[in-house]
Amino acid sequence: MIVPLDIIIFLVLIIAAVLAINVKDLLAAVALLAGYSLFASLLFAGVNAVDVSLVEAALGAGLTGVLFIGAILATSRHSTAKRNLRRRWTMLPLIAAFIGLMLFASTGLPDRGDPEAPAHQGVSRTYLSQSLEDTETPNVVTSLLADYRSQDTLGETLVIVTAALAAMLVLVRREGDDEDDTRGSDPGGDTSGEARGTTDDEQESGRDPYADEREGGRR
């Protein structure tokens, strides 16, 4: 991998992550998140992790975005949550402490691309040299996934199916299940509940951000 290109992609990743966290329009945040995943998949391809790159591009960048957009259209497009400054200032030292700890721990890690790193001395050498005669499969990741470590894969597949069933269990409306949809229009004591209507109308919800952009373009 060419190192300057690597660094540029990392800078793009950082910018996309900061914007995705900070932008008000949630659909824009999801678009930035998909771009973040796509550049991460480029980085995976750069270090010869082709299988991971393919999965990240298909599932991480594609399907995650679709799921996010579906959920945002089902709820509310604009992030109207008020800033909680007290919480931010209590969290920042915590994050700084975490990063400092990690930085201290990373001094014990091997250099980048070191062939003598301890992680490479283990069982994966056996996998690489034995895969072709054991399973007739040139792609070692596939033979690892479905043969040498297939119990791991069995567990992961079970997790995926369980996640789908859990989502069904949480969200499917059943008969006689009418406590939904009444609480949303509840004229309760809070103020921000009324500010967030359902946004099936594109014209109303789209007017404000584009008006800002148009003013910026005319100046």
């Binding site: 990240e56 599932l59 995926i160 969200l171 939904d180």
Partner: peptide
């Protein structure tokens, strides 16, 4: 590879919980 797929499943369940919360409370 498996962690990415499990991550997508986790995001799906989290979003299902969010939609349910929004239906119940009207806010996120």
């Amino acid at each position: 590879l498996t962690a990415i797929v499990v991550g997508v499943g986790v995001v799906g369940v989290a979003l299902a919980l969010l939609v349910r919360l929004y239906r119940t409370h009207g806010t996120l």
